[in-house]
Amino acid sequence: MKHDIYSTEGLYKIIRKEELSSTVSRHVIYAPLIAAKAKAGHFVILRAREGGERIPVTLVDWSPENGTVTVIIQAIGKSTTEMNAFKTGESFSDVAGPLGTPVEIKNYGTVLGVGGGVGIAELYPIARAFKEAGNRIISILGARNKDLLILEKEMAGLSDKVLVTTDDGSSGKKGLVTDAMKELYAAGEKLDAVFTIGPIIMMKFVAETSRPHGTPTFASLNPVMLDGTGMCGGCRVEVGGKPRFACVEGPMFDAHLTNFDLLLKRTAAYRENEKESLERYARDHQCRIGLH
């Protein structure tokens, strides 16, 4: 079916919503213009409703035929909690995109993908694109526990080898993704490129693990974003000693050149406000959501 990409009818409606775990949901959203253009590494800016904030979310999947895009959201604060309370048939007030610069897909040989938590969902389209380009794919999937381990089956389906690690050992090996990486290197595995998506601290240590081996390593950076179109610089990161706007030039950058410590400090800027906002939401909704 051919979709009119300029039509506003039915825009941003949730065609299908599924819960992948207690805090993680998959949303298939009607947005034909975005679906027609999306590539691996693109993201969208979502806004739940009037008065809502703009939050960046990576595109996990897209279908130009159905005019839909798929995102996976982990409820970690007010807006994501509210979004995951949406049901099939409800609509986001805004979905803007696709934004960012897609990942350059080529044949490296063997590509290692390292995903942490909800980052696994964001790794999925990139791993799939590299697979289609003829690469051998090794995946390391890390999570705090079994419940937060998502898309294991999908990742296994496209990977030549999958290693799973959890902090508590409830699935796969107990330990960190970097432990699994070290094992691969120790076993003499030849890695030609590493792509990592997950918590900043994890990506930092993935970069440190691959650095001595000289493996080209790329991380999908996740700074605070506002507009996502390059007009404010709130998302600026330091790569190779230079300021770069993650929303336009990224979010994928050379991990060996990234200043992760600065990124960690800058993402902590609104912690107090975020807590206040979530507490207020929890109070108003009398719901039992975990406040971390």
Binding site: G52, E53, L226, D227, M231, A269, N273, R280
Partner: peptide
């Protein structure tokens, strides 16, 4: 942290109505 471009600051305050936080969701 605390250094804003005027675009970011004004977009937060005006477009996102951050001055109404936490009634609106965008913080400043």
């Amino acid at each position: 942290v605390g250094v804003y471009s005027s675009n970011e600051f004004l977009t937060r305050v005006n477009l996102m109505e951050a001055y109404k936080f936490p009634v609106t969701d965008t913080p400043y």
